[in-house]
């Protein structure tokens, strides 16, 4: 019998994978440059959520959910051990922060490119932006 936690978690992971697939399709096959940018942000956000979820469930068994708060201001060794049991893995969050900052820079650059391409080509349809071929 599948418990509720596993069930919900599986649904969550599945929807993320579907999201990744749809946005991959959007970036590669949608002709409009604006829609490509939107798909790309959805893609990188789905990737970030994957990372966060991995940090969440990584070290512990399902079921024991408690807020990772340290009550004692001067913690003893036992307190820290207890804390480490309920805390999430902080490393994926650091990874996600880095990825978000980089994603912002890339998105800005792409928006600039789209604007400039619209000025020169008069369209954002990639099927008509094909001067370089062969």
């Amino acid at each position: 019998m599948i418990d509720v936690f596993t069930f919900l978690f599986t649904i969550c992971m599945l929807s993320i994978v579907v999201n990744l697939g749809i946005s991959l399709y959007g970036v590669l096959y949608k002709p409009s440059l604006i829609k490509k940018i939107i798909s790309l942000t959805i893609f990188s956000d789905s990737a970030n959520i994957t990372a966060i979820i991995i940090g969440y469930v990584r070290w512990r068994n399902p079921g024991e959910i408690a807020p990772p708060v340290l009550l004692n201001p001067n913690p003893t060794l036992e307190d820290i051990e207890e804390f480490a049991k309920v805390a999430v893995d902080p490393l994926p969050q650091a990874l996600v922060l880095t990825a978000i900052v980089i994603g912002l820079a890339v998105t800005l650059f792409l928006v600039f490119l789209t604007l400039q391409i619209y000025r020169f080509y008069g369209t954002t349809d990639v099927r008509r932006i094909a001067k370089l071929k062969g």
């Binding site: 991959l24 590669l28 002709p31 990639v126 094909a130 001067k131 071929k133 062969g134």
Partner: peptide
């Protein structure tokens, strides 16, 4: 090569890449 593959349109490239 020229009419199917190197058309210069990103959407045509994407089939090969995917």
């Amino acid at each position: 090569l020229v009419e199917k593959m190197h058309t210069g349109r990103v959407i045509d490239w994407a089939y090969y890449m995917t």
